[in-house]
């Protein structure tokens, strides 16, 4: 806080700092907002000034077979990949937190490694490996690849949540006669659900925004939304891209809000316990 008795230098520092940060945040934030109005532009150029208001680019998005197919593909691949990543990742996280065995650190590193290895390398490796197995140009291959890319986010968030989880609650449940399955669904799961959901959100965002591996693995019939956008930006950038971008911005805002809500909820619960 700026004190009333602050020296001129302190004042300059105080306002200078805020001005600078404001500019940097504008650099982060404004570019994203700039594209939104253009999606309502009446003519077909992606530039200002706009010639009038129109929803034609949303109509174009909704009716063009290529974009519809891309949306469909994204809505098939991403949820399935997320589900797979969440189930496998959550089980593995419970194992990683509860079991003790030699080489655990190495195994954890291996399970998290898809996050570290450059995506291009992952794409090439999977392409060369999947091709002879008939998994390129198939939904199975794409879902599998996206799930693997999402797994590290689930594993890191869920292990972090589990480390703060009091396993005496599980002991209490079993000592009161609940079987392990009941204990899991009635005690463990509700407590670690926020971690699983935020891990899942990360995994979903990863898959829903994934281009590079998809470029290698997907046939044109499996082009996802980002893949289609990549092609659109590269070939001829039209206001349809702006319309899709706007929809994606709304979606990411929703995901961010969900995550923020989960974080606050977790904070409240921690506060309530201590």
């Amino acid at each position: 806080m700026l004190q009333p008795y602050a020296s001129p230098v302190e004042r300059a520092w105080y306002y200078g700092m805020r001005g600078l940060v404001g500019l940097i945040l504008a650099f982060l934030f404004l570019p994203i907002l700039v594209i939104v109005p253009l999606s309502f532009n009446a003519d077909s150029f992606l530039m200002y000034p706009m010639s009038g208001f129109s929803l034609r680019w949303y109509e174009e998005f909704a009716t063009s077979p290529a974009w519809r197919q891309a949306l469909m593909n994204s809505l098939i691949v991403s949820p399935l990949a997320t589900l797979l990543a969440m189930v496998l990742g959550t089980l593995a996280s419970i194992g990683l937190v509860r079991a003790e065995f030699p080489g655990k650190a190495l195994l954890t590193a291996v399970l998290i490694s898809p996050m570290v290895v450059p995506v291009v390398v992952i794409g090439v490796a999977m392409y060369i490996f999947f091709a002879p197995l008939g998994l390129t140009g198939s939904y199975t291959g794409l879902v599998l690849a996206h799930a693997i890319l999402g797994v590290p986010f689930v594993v890191t968030t869920v292990t972090a949540t589990l480390q703060g989880f009091d396993f005496n609650l599980v002991r209490a449940a079993s000592s009161l006669g609940a079987n392990p399955l009941t204990t899991f669904f009635r005690v463990t799961l509700p407590m670690v659900a926020p971690g699983i959901i935020s891990g899942g959100l990360f995994a979903f965002a990863t898959s829903f925004d994934e281009v590079v591996v998809t470029l290698f693995l997907a046939s044109p019939e499996q082009a996802t939304l980002p893949r289609q956008m990549f092609a659109g930006i590269r070939e001829n950038i039209s206001p349809t891209i702006a319309a899709v971008a706007t929809i994606l911005i709304v979606l990411s805002t929703l995901m961010l809000m969900t995550l923020e809500w989960l974080r606050r909820r977790a904070e409240r619960m921690r506060g309530a316990r201590s």
């Binding site: 990742g89 079991a99 291996v110 390398v121």
Partner: peptide, 28 residues
């Protein structure tokens, strides 16, 4: 027994990652 039980939970993911990720990168 407890270690085996919880260790087994890691197995599905470890298998998927080994077969569909580590192996492809190794062969690359």
């Amino acid at each position: 027994r407890r270690n085996l039980l919880f260790g087994a939970l890691i197995l599905p993911l470890a298998l998927v990652v080994l077969v569909a990720f580590i192996w492809p990168i190794g062969s690359l």
